[in-house]
Each structure stands twice: as structure tokens, then as C-alpha cells.
């Protein structure tokens, strides 16, 4: 066994490739010179303190915010890799509605509160051309079951749901069209711990079962430990450390990452 025999197997082509991405708000830096790739089925966690640029980065990636410089290449189903910043608005919206999912920190930002739970799930399939009411309802109920919402609540509005139920509904609404990439901003933020565990377990199962790639922004290290294959740590708009999740959390090298890991309370 010698080093000369080393040969690397060909990697899967990336689903999303970001290079040199920067965004400032006036003189205030949002995120600076971010480059990374996400492969199909890979879960990437992004951690960092408040104000480190995580949410800015996520908003740029998901097309909700225009970065100042950089490119975001996405491997589209029918066209291959395309810089999504060059897509026109309708194209980008269609992409976001079909091939992507966006799970907001506050479920009220991602749900239609005046539409029934079933209607919230059925909206994306309908936007893609589904018209048979029975099929749409069956699929919606199938998803309600997957995210453990009682079918008796199908016709209730999410306004009447608890925070944890709303978050699970938002996830079902996003995953029903089998997106290939899901963006999640603090998916467990604001939920009490017992509900968090349930949601995490659910997400973990769904991500594995569907093989979707995901980018999860959070400040909760337990969340990334459980869900993410790979981790990026951000501070003041930059990525300061990255690697396999267990490497970064168990053997952090950067002073800030060490502080972050050592600050977690042991229960």
C-alpha cells in the first residue's frame, strides 16, 4: 500500500456551487467572499453567532437578496449548471417553487395563515399543474401524517395551530413537491426543547428518505450534530472554519469555534 497508488474516485457533480459571494449593507458587511459546494443529498450546516452573516448568506442563496459580487451556480434539472443570478425573476420563482424548498424561521412567514392546512400543502402541487381535488387532498393528508399532524385538522387554518405544528406544516408544504434542495433558517428556533427533538427526528428521517440536499442555518450545535454532514462556521461575515461536522465540533481549530463549542452547556 503506497502513496503513489493514490487515486481519487470521481466526485458527484455539485448541485449548488457558490464562489466569491459578498454582500454589504452600505458600510456594514453582510457576508464576505464565501465559496462552497453542496452535492446532491448532502446536508450542510452553517453556524455562527447572531450577526455573523448566516441569514444574509441564506437569503442570497435562495434568491431573496441580490449579492454584490460572486456567482451561484445551480444544476437545473433540464438545463444543467446555471448561474441563478442571471435568471429572470419568473424563472427564479419557478425554480424556488419546484426544485427548492425554503423553510423560514418563523412559520408564519412560510405559510398562508388564512388557507387550510391541506390547502397549504396542496398549493405547490397545484402550481405545478395538479388539478384533481381528490388526489391533491390525498397527497396533502399523506404529508400531514408524515409530519404527524392529526388528519382531523386538515381543514383547519394554521392560525389555530401551535408553533411546533405550524413548523411541521411548513416543512410538509415545502417537501411535498420533492425539491432537490431545501434552505432552512433556524428550523427549530423558538420551539420548546421537547418539540425540537420531535422536529429534528422528523427532519432527519425525511432528509434521508427523500435524499434531498439541505442548507441549514442555525446557532444550535445540537441541531447540526444531528442533521448536517458538513459544517461551516461563520464570524463577522466570513467562513472561519469548515469541515465534517464531527471534526469541526470535536476538534475545533479556530479560536472562535473553540469558544462556541466550549460554551455549550452540558445537560
Amino acid at each position: 500500500m503506497t502513496a503513489s497508488a493514490l487515486r481519487k474516485p470521481a466526485p458527484k457533480p455539485p448541485l449548488l456551487e457558490v464562489s466569491g459571494l459578498s454582500k454589504s449593507y452600505g458600510t456594514q458587511v453582510g457576508c464576505r467572499d464565501i465559496s462552497f459546494a453542496v452535492r446532491p443529498g448532502e446536508v450542510l450546516g452553517i453556524v455562527g453567532e447572531s450577526g455573523s452573516g448566516k441569514s444574509t448568506l441564506l437569503a442570497c442563496l435562495s434568491g431573496r437578496l441580490q449579492p454584490d459580487t460572486g456567482s451561484i451556480s445551480y444544476d437545473m434539472k433540464d438545463r444543467g449548471p446555471v448561474d441563478i443570478l442571471t435568471l429572470c425573476e419568473p424563472e427564479r420563482r419557478r425554480l424556488a417553487r419546484t426544485d427548492w424548498g425554503i423553510v423560514h424561521q418563523n412559520p408564519r412567514d412560510g405559510l398562508r395563515l388564512d388557507v387550510s392546512a391541506g390547502g397549504n400543502i396542496g398549493e405547490r402541487p397545484m402550481a405545478l399543474g395538479a388539478r384533481h381535488y381528490g388526489n391533491i387532498r390525498t397527497e396533502a393528508q399523506d404529508w400531514l401524517q408524515k409530519v404527524e399532524i392529526d388528519l382531523a385538522r386538515t381543514d383547519d387554518r394554521p392560525r389555530t395551530f401551535s408553533g411546533g405544528m405550524q413548523q411541521r406544516l411548513q416543512i410538509a408544504r415545502n417537501l411535498v413537491t420533492r425539491p432537490r434542495l431545501v434552505f432552512m433558517d433556524e428550523p427549530t428556533g423558538g420551539l420548546d426543547v421537547s418539540v425540537q427533538a420531535r422536529l429534528l427526528d422528523l427532519l432527519r428521517g425525511l432528509v434521508r428518505e427523500l435524499g434531498v440536499a439541505a442548507i441549514i442555518v442555525t446557532h444550535d450545535l445540537a441541531v447540526v450534530r444531528l442533521l448536517a454532514d458538513r459544517l461551516m462556521v461563520m464570524q463577522r461575515g466570513r467562513v472561519i472554519e469548515e469541515g465534517l461536522t464531527d471534526q469541526v465540533l470535536d476538534d475545533p481549530h479556530h479560536p472562535y469555534t473553540q469558544l462556541l463549542v466550549s460554551s455549550v452547556l452540558q445537560v
Binding site: 502513496a3 497508488a5 481519487k8 474516485p9 458538513r230
Partner: peptide
């Protein structure tokens, strides 16, 4: 194939 675990990419 012989691979070096320390030089491998995270996905590898």
C-alpha cells in the same frame, strides 16, 4: 483503491 483519509474531501 488506496486512499489517504486525511487528504480526502469531506464527502469521501
Amino acid at each position: 483503491q488506496t486512499v489517504d483519509l486525511l487528504a480526502a474531501e469531506p464527502w469521501e
